[in-house]
Nucleic acid binder design. Structure first.
Lengths: 157, 157
DNA sequence: TGGCGCTATATAGCCTGCTATCAACAAGGG
DNA sequence: CCCTTGTTGATAGCAGGCTATATAGCGCCA
């Protein structure tokens, strides 16, 4: 009875995520969209003209990551950043016409991939999978809160 | 009835994978091990002294990725590369004593994390999850084989 | 009002992955 | 024996993540 299941769970998970990203990339490439842009597009399609800060509050990536992603999206002509009249530190992010026009094709690509990945699975399988993934995600969030805060001595005078 | 489930499956999956990697990193950092090293360590602990090519055949990453990972592991004193006597292009990769000594702690870290992630899940949940993940992974592999090979005209003289 | 601390964003530097390409060596055929 | 073709590994350059830190502007309070 093997204790170590030959390939690590982490390895399989990473591989799965990378395969997913690659299939997505294959479908999005002709549109000039990268997988990292998806989250931004998703929220801006719902609510255009917000600041980076607001967008950041909606998305599960760090501020620096978002900043870099927005830079590439600007370079690729998907968003524009105009100064926020109310706060000179901030910029209002808006989608370009091109980005707006892309929505149906991007949605189609996502749907296509979803269908491909779901072949052979029941509705129940999918729900169950998402439920377990959500629960594991919560456990990981907790795990990181419980992080070793240590080094709290040495605060001396 | 929402068709679009608020956050994209891909986004959730990526986030889950990143959280997993981060929790792993938190446990491995004190050992001087990065998450990308795990696969290499895993296989070399089983079978030390193989070439990069052999290792590559075992691992689900591209050759260039492996090459870079090995470079960082060498820099960090975990592996050594000695010339292969049978083939002057190749190097034999061996673990350093430090890397060998690290095995119990790394295994412990992996086990700890596994336990943390599995809290609240039944054995059945875990098995089911892995099964669905494996099946989705296979669907994605198929998806990429079916890739648009296109551009096969224009070969003419 | 002048300065200090907080906040919005950008940048530097790293890890991990990818594709494309190159250099060096191996192996076989003519 | 040499020359072509294949194979092993390294490198360049990019995407997308991260932490840490810098910069600029906002706001408040003394």
């Amino acid at each position: 009875m093997h204790y170590e299941p030959d390939t690590l769970f982490f390895t399989q998970l990473s591989r799965f995520q990378r395969l997913y990203a690659r299939s997505l990339a294959a479908r999005l490439a002709p549109l000039g969209v990268h997988s990292g842009y998806l989250g931004v597009l998703h929220y801006l399609w719902q609510r255009d003209g917000i600041t980076q800060k607001t967008l950041h509050e909606l998305m599960p990536v760090e501020q620096a990551t978002l900043s870099n992603t927005l830079k590439r999206m600007e370079r690729d002509g998907l968003i524009a950043r105009t100064p926020d009249p109310d706060d000179k530190r901030a910029h209002v992010i808006t989608l370009t016409p091109r980005a707006n026009a892309l929505k149906p094709q991007v949605m189609q690509a996502i749907g296509d991939l979803r269908a491909a990945v779901n072949t052979g699975l029941t509705v129940n399988d999918r729900r169950y999978f998402r439920r377990i993934m959500r629960q594991m995600t919560e456990s990981l969030e907790t795990d990181q809160e419980d992080a070793p805060v240590l080094l709290l001595d040495e605060v001396g005078p």
